[in-house]
Computed example of a mutant assay.
Amino acid sequence: MNFLSIPKRKTGNRVCGITSVIDLGIPLGVLQSILEDYSPYIDFAKIGIGTAYVTPRLQEKINLYKAYHVKPFFGGTFFEKCYHQNKLKEYVQTLNEFEIEWIEISTGTLDIPLEERLQLISMLKNDFHCLAEVGSKDNSFDMPVDDWKQEIKLLLEAGSTYCITEGRDSGTSGIYEKNGEIKSNLIHELIKDIDVNKIIFEAPTPRHHMFFINEFGANVNLGNIKLTDVLALEAERCGLRSESFFMEG
């Protein structure tokens, strides 16, 4: 159908308007069905937390995503576990073996110094597209706004393609309060000096989706999207939900 005035969505190999889903163990058969119908609305797939290490038929899953032009990558917790055990060399070898082209550099569980993360990106950016996650999974830690801004700026300058703002799959840390409320003042401060198209906001629930869509438009980058929410999110982006009803083309 093509008769309504709705926001114009980016299509094809999007560089903004990104939808990055989180895969926490969806079976291959179910994934195949979802991708057959909804893959045009999906850009990235994070094989979340450390599930890639224990996923059966992992290569088949990676190949399936790629067949539908979705970019797979491993969750940051897997990266941090390897960092903690001094296994980053083995981690990189694993990414190469599975032909994963994107790498997430995060510090959600470990407190990895910014300088080390910058060095890692500088070292890896020639072989991978880098995604740098900023913010802690510890919801008792309130990172100052200036630190958020400095880290994002420096990580992008070092060669990260995008920065991901931590929100967890529960929406209760990082850019969110413990109760799931959005730190809207933080978000507005971030985008004063940083290109919003270089940020992927983790937004695991419809309430979070709608905040970012209403603030930044249909083509805001969103991450940690549940596979079952992909179609509803696309409708939200197109002004086809009550909360985004008055968005027009």
Rank of each mutant, 00 (worst) to 15 (best):
F128S: 00
E248S: 10
V145I: 15
S5G: 11
H209L: 15
Y53A: 15
R168P: 07
M123G: 03
T107R: 06
V230H: 03
F78I: 09
E189C: 12
V220C: 01
C130N: 13
F216Q: 15
G180T: 11
K81Q: 11
N214F: 11
L190S: 05
T107K: 06
L186N: 07
G12D: 10
A218I: 06
E234P: 00
S122H: 11
F201P: 05
P27Q: 11
I187G: 06
G25S: 05
K192Q: 04
E234Q: 05
G17D: 09
L240M: 10
C238E: 14
N221K: 03
S184H: 07
Q32I: 14
P204Q: 07
N86E: 07
L110Q: 08
K8F: 09
I199C: 08
R168Q: 11
L240S: 03
T205H: 12
N63H: 04
S184V: 09
N179H: 07
P56T: 11
F74G: 04
N214R: 03
K153A: 11
K87A: 12
R57W: 15
I187F: 12
V70M: 04
I164W: 02
S122C: 13
G75Q: 02
A158H: 05
E157H: 03
Q93R: 15
E99K: 06
G174E: 00
M1P: 07
N179E: 01
P144S: 13
D147I: 15
E215S: 08
Y68D: 03
S184T: 15
K153D: 01
L231D: 02
F98Y: 13
F98S: 05
I22N: 02
E60P: 02
G159K: 03
G223W: 02
S170Y: 09
Q32T: 15
E80S: 08
F246W: 14
N126Q: 02
